[in-house]
Amino acid sequence: MIMKAALAAALLAGSLGAAADSVVEQGKQVAFDRKKGNCLTCHQMEGGTLAGNWGPPLMAMKARYPNKEDLRAQIWDPTKRNPMTSMPPFGRNGILTEAEIDLVVEFVHSL
């Protein structure tokens, strides 16, 4: 019994880890897809090529955004913080779905 529980726990932990990885991976795909986030148009991001330099490179994001909600808000509607920004309002204008934004947040937060 004890063995079984430990195994189950290990399996659970393993699959959770894999699931977490894949959320970041899925977020990366949405972020890099030219028809979705297309974030590389403006931001250098690790793992991406041919990035533009319109916006700042996205790195050390956990330090910049200890609170994930703030990061989400920046992606959902960057004009809240800076009305003049040229970064598109991905959530407000429905460029990405709420679920896609959640994925992108996970990916960007991992950078």
């Binding site: 590389l40 148009t41 403006c42 041919l50 990035a51 533009g52 330099n53 319109w54 003049m84 040229s86």
Partner: peptide
């Protein structure tokens, strides 16, 4: 604002 900056390679 964007003049001189790059959107991808443009």
């Amino acid at each position: 604002y964007g003049a001189g900056l790059n959107a991808r390679a443009d």
